[in-house]
Amino acid sequence: MSTAAVLICALCLDALLGEPRWLWDRVPHPAVLMGRFVGFLDQRFNTGRNKRRNGILCTIALVIIGGALGYLLSTAGPLVEIIVAAMLLAQKSLVQHVAAVADGLRMSLREGQRMVARIVSRDTSVMDETLVARAALESAAENLSDGVIAPAFWFLIAGLPGLVVYKLINTADSMIGYRTPRHEAFGWAAARLDDVLNLIPARLTAALLALPARCFDFAGIRADAGRHRSPNAGWPEAALSRALGVALAGPRAYDGQMQDFPYVNPDGRSILTPVDIDAGIAMLWKAWAGFLALCVLLVLM
């Protein structure tokens, strides 16, 4: 069974089942276990005068351990590969979390704020309806890349070892890859490697979002992506903003402090509603279907 065929099955299994609560309420999700391991490395080795060296060595260890674990699991056969890959993809759960924000907003602003707080780290209590919807769409675009397209891409490139390594490094980046006094040195290697691993997938995600909407303004997407603080996250956000014709990003508050981030697609519509979140969810599925079609083409070649 080819790698692309295995991935097709995994993508469909994830889209069908997502993350069943009856299972993950009883046993830890693999992503949770990855987070615990990264947390252990942070507590054990993020000390002393050589934090950057320790962080580099820990990042190398994550790559070796992830590659070895992925290889061992792959020797169990295609069925195990399909199940493990499906567990490490997040299309349905992403859609469910984003849809919950739209449903919450339809009930009340407070409920929308509560739902969006589950998927973004910024201050939500001061958000109006537009800011809630905007945050949900930004999270949807970024997590489509990080949680679906990038892990699927690395599965195509390097099988289950590639997928497990990507998820470990992406988990590490989300936990220690911040420019804070504690993590700037220790998390440097994980953050830089995560940037490299997402270089192609982020741009592929942008194309998968833009093309179904017949949005061919790639120069505008590239320009807006360059304004983002991340070298990769701006690409899917810029593509989704143009696909929907809305303005994303802009000023937002973290820990009580307003930060003046530039707008993505500043000429887009500035007033957003739950309907825009619904449209964003439709784009998530179109992008997923586009990637699935690419996998089918690889099988037929």
Rank of each mutant, 00 (worst) to 15 (best):
A5W: 03
V6Y: 06
C9I: 02
L11F: 04
R21W: 14
M34I: 02
R36L: 05
F37P: 00
F40V: 12
F40Y: 15
N50K: 11
R53Y: 05
C58S: 14
C58D: 02
V63H: 01
A68N: 15
A68L: 15
G70K: 01
V80N: 01
M87Q: 14
L89W: 07
Q91N: 09
K92G: 05
V95L: 13
V95T: 07
V95G: 15
V98G: 04
D103L: 04
G104A: 02
L105G: 12
R106Y: 14
L109H: 07
G112N: 13
R114Q: 13
R114N: 15
M115Y: 10
I119C: 06
T124Y: 01
V126W: 06
M127Y: 07
E129T: 14
E129D: 03
T130E: 05
V132F: 13
R134V: 08
A136M: 00
N143F: 00
L144T: 02
P151R: 06
A152K: 00
F153H: 07
P161E: 00
G162A: 15
G162Q: 13
L163K: 13
L163R: 01
Y166T: 12
K167A: 12
A172D: 07
A172P: 05
I176F: 09
I176R: 01
H183W: 14
E184R: 15
G187V: 05
G187T: 03
W188P: 05
A190H: 09
V196H: 08
N198H: 08
L204C: 11
A206I: 08
L208V: 00
P212R: 08
P212E: 15
R214H: 15
F216S: 10
R227Q: 05
N232Q: 14
G234L: 04
E237R: 06
E237C: 07
A238N: 00
S241E: 02
R242E: 11
G245V: 02
L248K: 04
P251Y: 13
D255I: 04
G256S: 12
Q257N: 13
V275H: 12
D276P: 08
I277E: 12
K286S: 07
A287D: 15
W288C: 11
W288R: 08
W288F: 15
M301C: 11
